[in-house]
Computed example of a mutant assay.
Amino acid sequence: MNDPADNKPPSFWQMLHSVMAAAFGVQSGKNRTRDFSHGKASHFLLMGLLFTLVFALTLYGIVTLVVHLAGV
């Protein structure tokens, strides 16, 4: 059966889940197919860049905190 929900573009949370899963290499085939058939590449590129920036800044913050607490 053709579910009308399958023809809608992915929501923000579905895109975020897909970007995070792809970043860690655990993206499912079903989600990848949905993303390529109904999503816009520009949205995924922007979300991927933002995810990478937030991830890098988080790592930087953790390292800075650890170094500060270690008294180095």
Rank of each mutant, 00 (worst) to 15 (best):
D6R: 07
D3L: 00
A41M: 10
L53G: 04
W13L: 13
M1Y: 07
P10I: 09
A41F: 11
V19A: 00
G71D: 13
D3S: 01
L69T: 10
D3M: 06
D35A: 13
N31M: 11
P9H: 09
K8F: 10
V54D: 05
V66K: 07
G71I: 10
G61F: 03
G29N: 09
F24L: 00
A41T: 11
Q27N: 06
S28F: 01
D35T: 13
T58G: 00
M47N: 10
L45M: 14
T64Y: 13
K30S: 09
A23Y: 04
T33W: 07
R32F: 07
T64Q: 09
G39E: 07
P10W: 02
G29K: 04
D6L: 00
L53M: 11
V67T: 15
S42R: 15
I62P: 06
K40W: 14
T33Q: 08
A70G: 15
M15A: 15
L49N: 04
P4T: 02
S11I: 14
S42F: 11
K30E: 12
F51I: 03
S42V: 15
N7M: 09
L50C: 11
L50N: 08
H38V: 00
M15L: 14
L57F: 01
M47A: 14
P10G: 10
T64V: 14
P10S: 08
F55R: 00
K8I: 05
G71M: 07
G71N: 09
V66F: 13
Q14E: 15
P4A: 01
L50F: 08
Q14W: 00
N2W: 11
I62R: 05
K40A: 13
L50K: 02
V19D: 00
R34L: 05
F24N: 02
